[in-house]
Structure formats: structure tokens, C-alpha cells
Design a protein around this nucleic acid. Structure first.
Lengths: 347, 347
DNA sequence: ACGCACTCCGTAAACGTTTACGAATGTTGG
DNA sequence: CCAACATTCGTAAACGTTTACGGAGTGCGT
């Protein structure tokens, strides 16, 4: 089946009517609509997207830009694959398709994004891994492409974003550890310019201050957010002349490497040191002793993300009138055994 | 910048010339070409993809269909993210873009694929997770969309595919274990209809036969190819009245769960049972004792995959004249400690 | 019998691009 | 000086679709 023209000829109907029938327009006889739909089904006709996009000025495609760096591969963190289900469940209602756009690691992310949006392959974008100052944001703002960022940024201007509640997590982690008698609480921070690191650290400092604990820069461990990073972090912790009694991880997978390194030195998480992880991940779910961490539903996050994005697209705003543009996503504390170690008892 | 028309007006040149200049066509004065390119750069003009695709009948986009099921998320196996780099390095040379198409878990994969290809969003497809009989293959064949499958299938007709050397792996694993005195060698197989399971098992049976070892169905453990599957597999192994002395895993991540379950029962891999894994994965790289497994480069696989696909696209065949259509990808054995256990010595 | 409203459908323009064709100009050779 | 050719560019058609517009037919009220 070539195009709508052949379908129309086959039915001996004008292409205009065929188009209207297929698109559910009102001014077409129900009888003919049935015929058209039947014929389309039979001949396997589906409208050519290029023609449609050209005419309508929209593609019905939403892009999700992701990293495909070696680091991302090594981490094997399927965060966005998990979010995908939630996204699609919302998009499907509007006949929108989701595509994932892996930015080549040797290409500038902004340049890659520019190519994609300028070619008008997508109607809207979801960007992730937001940097502290992210030049993709002004690009998208200027190009007037609807978008939403997963992760806040200091880039100027108002723009829609959704972000995990790093403040809340850091704060509650500190509170919990302090309540158990800890005063020397280490924290990991990403070595990159990704914005969440700053947010996490700031909240950690504020929480410490609230408890009257002096901030000690040597307790901030800057490592890559990965399993190896966790190993490295434990290594550095063990080298400190005055060891912390607790550590907060910004990335759950770090726990795996951290556990390994600690155990190599005979330090048992939960018994000799308290550990609180950030997220709940399948891979960290079976650690022994079980990891205390903060959990959320990737699916629900995807749903909220999709809704917030659509609320910022003129054509879809009406469906999501009450949706906010800036969402802080809460996480639920899952108590495990890894932070059972109480400092007051031991000291 | 709206379109090529505005750019042409701005330059006071016809749109035909502008188009030719931008596309590197020969019949345009080098002087004007420079002017056009400069103006395009300045005004940020990039050709609208819909218009171009419509005219040229091609989109310059290659689709990679992936699963976004909960199971895929849980596994957190970034196989395709790793392959992506290799793919893009080849595609970039032809100005082709790669998009990943996550099939919603509640949608029939074939129907999803039909929608995508019928809308002509992509010029070619890469499909993965090939089933034993995969109806996507006849769909693509009939639609005459160039494609390649990652994984063989019994679906009728010749079609391009690339696949890991499951035969070789199973064969060499058996040989290696037999050489170390093992006679009761268990093997894991996927519980789903994915084709690689059959290939793997067949080769295992042939290798056993070659060594004069009778095939024992109770040694085939059908579990999900995941960390949990590994745990489950170990559990079932331990329940067998006559325990195997060695086990071959079809999926590297199973090793993690398998180790855990074995150790819970005081069975130490490499000392009390020999374990050989399939692939080398970041997550399995730090197991103690180290896992003997088969390794390959995801990047190189991506390169080969891209080349094989392009060789099957009329417009690009000339660049890859010697490329085969069916590729069995070799893996290299990485000897670790997990299969150090020798049966002859102990018995 | 007439006008009006309503239903249904055909016509044709438009979306932004590429490209076949030919026109205009300059260049060369005889 | 003319033919032949090369270079450069403009013109217009075409890709497949949607949709504004209007026309044809029907039914209804007056």
C-alpha cells in the first residue's frame, strides 16, 4: 500500500474523505467510515508520518535524551527504562510516541540536541542528567520547543522540571543518623557538575548545622556515582585518621562497591558503620545486611513527568490544567539493617 | 528561522540554490555556497526533517527496538546502551541518526513495530530479543523495510542477523569442565521462548554426547535470566538428590544470585562447585571468587551490527560490499576462579 | 414552490524540502 | 562571429497528508 491516494482509488472515494474518515472527523457518513477503516485495515494502510507532520506541523513524537557514555553503560542503571513505562502510559492516551535519543559520547550534548530539535523530529523533549549550568536549557527555551528537565538547574529563566527530593532525603538521613547518636557523618558527592550533587550537599550542611554539628570538608567524598565509586569512597573513608561512624550515599549502586571494600577491611555495615543509601535499586535490593534507603516508584515518576510535560504543551494543556511545572518528587524511607549501628551505644 | 524560503529571501537567492548549496551539490558557485552556509549558521537554520523525508522518501533515521518490560528494568542489563556507541560510530559516517524505540510492555511488539514502520519514521530497524518464531520478521520482510535481528530465529526466509556464538560458548564450557573431570554438568536455560535458549541447549547436548555423557533433563534449570533467576537456579540445584559438580549459566547476571544462594548453604563457587558464566558484565566483574566467563566488546558488536545492517540497505551497500548477512559473534574465554574446582581431584 | 439547514463529500491549497529541467551567462574553439 | 559547451542559478513539480471551502443532495417548514 503506497499512500492515501491508492486507498482512495481502491474505494472510489476522494482522498479528502478518506483522510477525514480515518481521523475521526465528524462530517463523514458512518457507513463510508466503516468501509474506509475496513479497507485501511485490510490493505495495511497507515498514514505516512512525514506527510502528516509536514502538513500539521507536529510529529506526535516525544524525545527522551539519554547518555550513552561508557560510564552510563557501566552503571547499568536502568533509571530511564523504568521511567519509560510510566511515560508511555500517559503518552498513549494522546497517541504520542516516545523515542529515546542516545547522545553519542563523542558529541556535544547541546549540539546533538540542536540537530534533533531543528530537524523537528520531535514535538517536545525530555532532558536528563541536568548540569548545574546546562546550555541545553536556553537552547530549548529559545527554540520554543516544549520540554521538561529531569533535574533542576541553575540555568537562568523559568523552565519546567521534575526532580527527586534530594533535600528531603539528605535532611532525613542526617536526622535519622543524628538521632542514633552519630556526629561524624560522611557523605558522597558526584565528581561531575551534575546539579543534584550541589543540592544534596547543601541540604546535608544545613541539616548538620541544625543539629549544631560543624561541617567537616574531609567527610565529603567526591567519587563517581557508580559501583566502583562506592568502592573508592569506602577506601577513602577507611584512610581518614578520624573515621566517620556513618555515611550517606547519593547513589544506591555505590552501596555495592562500598560494602565490598568495607568488608575487605573487616568493617561490617550496620555493625561497625551506619550506611544509608539513596535510592532503591534492584541491584542493591539483596545486599547483606539490607540497605536502608529511600524508595520511589519509577513508573509513578514517569507518569508525573509525562503529565508535567504535556501541561506545558499548548495542545495538551487542557487535559492537565492543574499540573505544576516544578515538581519535587518525594521518596519513602525503607528501613534496613545497614544503619542499625548506634553510636551512643558503642561509644 | 522558519524555513528555507526565509533563508533564501534573506540572501536574495532562490530556494533551489540554497538547497543545493546546503546539500553540497556541485552546480553552485563556491562563493554563494559560502554565503549560504554562513547565513544558515548565523540564523540557525536546519532543514525540516518532515519536508526532506517527504521529498526524498527516506528519514535518515535507524530505529532500535528494545523491551521496556519490568523484567528488562530489573535486570538492568545495559546491553543495548553499550552497543549503541558502536552503532553510532558507524551511522555517524553516513549522517544517520539512531533512535531507540521502547516497546510498551502492554502492547504487542509486532503491532508496535507495525505502527512505527508504517508511519515511516525510520529507514531501517534493528530488532532484538528475537523469539524462536518471531512474527516481527515476516512483517519487516513483507514491508520490505531493511532490518537486522540481534539473535537468530527459526522464522522462515532468509534475513540478516547477528548473534552471539552460543554454540561455541556452550561447547567450550562443556569441554573445559569435562577436561577437569566433571560429568554432572548443569545448565540454565531461559523460561521464555527466546531463541538463544534452544541454541544454547542444543549445543550443550551435542557437546555432552561428544564426551559420551548422557543427557540428564533434571540438570536443565529453567529460570528467568536475571539475578533472581540465578538465585532460584542455585536453589533448585541444591535440592537435587544427586548434585551436579558444575553449572553453566546462560546469563552473566545470574551468577550474582547464584553465588548468594550457594553461599547461604555454605557451598563455595570454585571450591565446591564449578561455575562458568556466559558474558562479562560490569556487575559480575567483582564477584568473589572471580567468575570464569566469556567476554566480548559491546562496542565492536555494535560496529559489526551497524555494518551488517547498512550492507542490507540498497543506498549504503556500496560502502560495505564484503559484509556478510549472518554473523556469529565470537566470545573470548576469561578464566576466573569460579571453575577451579576439579572433580577428579576431589572425588 | 421556495428558502433554509443539514449532511456528506470532492477540490485544491498548503506544509518544507529536493531536484529535473531549462534559461542565462560566460568561455572556448574554430 | 558563431556554435558548442560549461557554469550557475531560477522555476516549478513532486513527495503524502490535512483541511478550508464550497457544492450537491436531502429534508423540512412555510
Amino acid at each position: 500500500m503506497r499512500g492515501i491516494r491508492q486507498l482512495a482509488e481502491h474505494l472510489d472515494i476522494s482522498i479528502g474523505t478518506v483522510s477525514r474518515a480515518l481521523n475521526g472527523k465528524p462530517d463523514v457518513n458512518e457507513e463510508t467510515r466503516k468501509r474506509v477503516l475496513a479497507a485501511a485495515e485490510e490493505l495495511g494502510y497507515v498514514a505516512n508520518q512525514s506527510g502528516r507532520s509536514l502538513r500539521q506541523g507536529e510529529t506526535k513524537v516525544i524525545g527522551l535524551m539519554i547518555e550513552s557514555s561508557m560510564e552510563a553503560v557501566e552503571n547499568a542503571d536502568n533509571f530511564f527504562l523504568g521511567v519509560t513505562s510510566g511515560l508511555q502510559s500517559v503518552f498513549a492516551r494522546h497517541k504520542l510516541d516516545l523515542i529515546m535519543l542516545p547522545c553519542p559520547s563523542d558529541e556535544d550534548p547541546r549540539e546533538y540536541l540542536r540537530r534533533i530539535v531543528a530537524r523537528r523530529i520531535v514535538d517536545a523533549m525530555i532532558i536528563s542528567n541536568t548540569q548545574r549550568l546546562d546550555r541545553r536549557i536556553d537552547l530549548l527555551s529559545r527554540a520554543k520547543i516544549p520540554f521538561i528537565a529531569v533535574g533542576r538547574s541553575l540555568s537562568p529563566g523559568n523552565f519546567p522540571w521534575i526532580d527527586l527530593d534530594f533535600e528531603g532525603v539528605a535532611e532525613r538521613a542526617v536526622d535519622r543518623l543524628v538521632a542514633r547518636g552519630h556526629r561524624r557523618i560522611a557523605i558522597t558527592a558526584p565528581s561531575s557538575e551534575v546539579n543534584l550533587g550541589y543540592i544534596f550537599l547543601d541540604s546535608y550542611r544545613r541539616a548538620l548545622a541544625r543539629h549544631g554539628i560543624a561541617f567537616d570538608p574531609s567527610l565529603v567524598i567526591r567519587v563517581k556515582s557508580s559501583e566502583q565509586g562506592g568502592y573508592q569512597a569506602a577506601h577513602e573513608l577507611l584512610l581518614l585518621e578520624q573515621r566517620p561512624t556513618a555515611v550517606i550515599l547519593i547513589y544506591e549502586l555505590m552501596a555495592i562497591g562500598l560494602y565490598r571494600r568495607l568488608m575487605e577491611s573487616g568493617v561490617m555495615p550496620g555493625r561497625d558503620i551506619a550506611v544509608i543509601g539513596f535510592r532503591d535499586a534492584p541491584r542493591a535490593r539483596f545486599l547483606q545486611p539490607s540497605l536502608s534507603c529511600f524508595r520511589m516508584s519509577l513508573y509513578d515518576l514517569g507518569v508525573a513527568l509525562a503529565r508535567a510535560l504535556l501541561a506545558n504543551m499548548p495542545a495538551y494543556r487542557k487535559f492537565y490544567p492543574d499540573e505544576g511545572s516544578n515538581i519535587v518528587w518525594p521518596l519513602e524511607l525503607i528501613a534496613g539493617e545497614s544503619d542499625a549501628f548506634q553510636q551512643g551505644v558503642m561509644a
